[in-house]
Design a protein around this nucleic acid. Structure first.
Lengths: 230, 230
DNA sequence: TTTCCAAAAATGTGATCACAAAATAAGAAT
DNA sequence: ATTCTTATTTTGTGATCACATTTTTGGAAA
């Protein structure tokens, strides 16, 4: 059993142990800190997070509910493996879900909010030019999230994040193999469409952005990686 | 504290207490056994299910992850209330998700599977003519599930069920107020399209089916109910 | 060296308990 | 009768323990 290293995450005062464990594990999986097939144990995580098994168990159970982990028949807890076919399904689901969420957010976005989204996009490009892959990835997620969450009655975000979580472990592999990221200019296209409040164009740009590369990672290259990583 | 009545559910041998509690509560919410705003307690459910609090807590936490329950700030556990706007978002999300899932299932459906789906549709109509609202609802979900699950690499079903769960409590109210159900013939349309393996037509039929009525319940009527039920 | 079997260790499950926070009930003051 | 305060009860949280199952280990047999 090798020592566990989880990306750090600030713990807000008053947050329960369970919520903290959930948030931290969730983030770890989302940014690809675990490889597909990795198995975790309740006691191991309890030790790593300096708590008792109880809240960890609850966090793990929640993570399975959103597809981030798998409780196998043997009672083993693992990070799910992904087949190329499943990968393709996940991407197409992202496209459908996110272009829909984007479309329904357009009418709610203020100019000020769009400015903030532009700032996030600049942060993404800065991270890419700097070669900071993990930072670019997180900023990219933030870019998308800020758009979808502008809709106050929005209900799709949790589902979208579930898909992100299922793609997370793949991103971890991609980050190891992809030497350099490229700037995705579909973001610019999306921003222009947002400014015009053009719902169709926004949906189209978001869809294309996902299709062409998941957050700076070339989609085809990842698909190829997948068939190798067995 | 009034006594809790949960729809019965068979417990397969070897199923853990936690899994059973999760499955049973989930089904109860899905078929509208709980009204929006209802609050539940860990100890109360533990007693009702004759177990200790531990597995119940895990089940409740999982249910919150999929939007079926809400842990409030005050630590109260409630069945979420739904606003008309949220309701509309959920319906439009259903349309997007399910027409996509249906489309991607078409190529995988064998004639034998389609026959089974036809049989389910007949069961729905029988239940409707018989006035068995709950049975019609469950059969209707089964109709949709059988289509989407035909795709072996499918990843959308858990998300779709999450949306169903969020709509569940509304269905409970609808069942109380709607006196009679009507047969939705969009199912026939979907079946015809399935036989022709016409993806566009299938997606269109499923979308229309959802738009016109959620499982036999008129959508507009429910929207009106919502604004009253406060 | 490989295969097989038994002992030991590790691991998930579920019950119980102490504790703190929240909700409710009860009584006093206005 | 109503409002406020205090005491009691309820409830979620997290730690701990016993148990059964699974996995791993270590050595014997082929």
């Amino acid at each position: 059993m090798k020592a566990l290293v989880l990306p750090v995450l600030e713990r807000p005062e008053g947050m329960t142990t369970h919520d903290y464990a959930f948030a931290r594990l969730r983030q770890a999986i989302m940014v690809g800190a675990f490889r597909p097939g990795t198995s975790v144990t309740i006691r191991g995580l309890a030790e790593a997070l300096e708590s008792s098994p109880t809240p960890i168990r609850e966090a793990l159970r929640q993570l399975t509910s959103i597809g981030a982990l798998d409780f196998l028949e043997n009672r083993r807890i693992v990070v799910p493996r992904i087949t190329p076919a499943r990968f393709e399904e996940l991407i197409s689901l992202r496209i459908v879900l996110e272009s829909h969420a984007a479309r329904r957010a357009v009418a709610h976005l203020s100019d000020r909010q769009i400015d903030r989204i532009v700032a996030i996009d600049e942060a993404i490009e800065a991270a890419i030019l700097d070669g900071q892959k993990a930072a670019a990835l997180i900023a990219n997620q933030e870019f998308h999230r800020q758009i979808y969450m502008a809709n106050p009655d929005q209900v799709a975000m949790p589902l979208i994040e579930s898909v992100w979580l299922q793609l997370g472990p793949i991103l971890g592999i991609a980050m190891e193999h992809v030497t350099e990221l490229y700037v995705v200019d579909r973001h610019r296209e999306a921003i222009e469409a947002l400014r015009r409040r053009d719902e169709d164009a926004v949906a189209e740009a978001i869809g294309a952005d996902i299709r062409e590369g998941i957050g700076g990672f070339d989609q085809q290259a990842i698909g190829k990686l997948l068939s190798l990583a067995r």
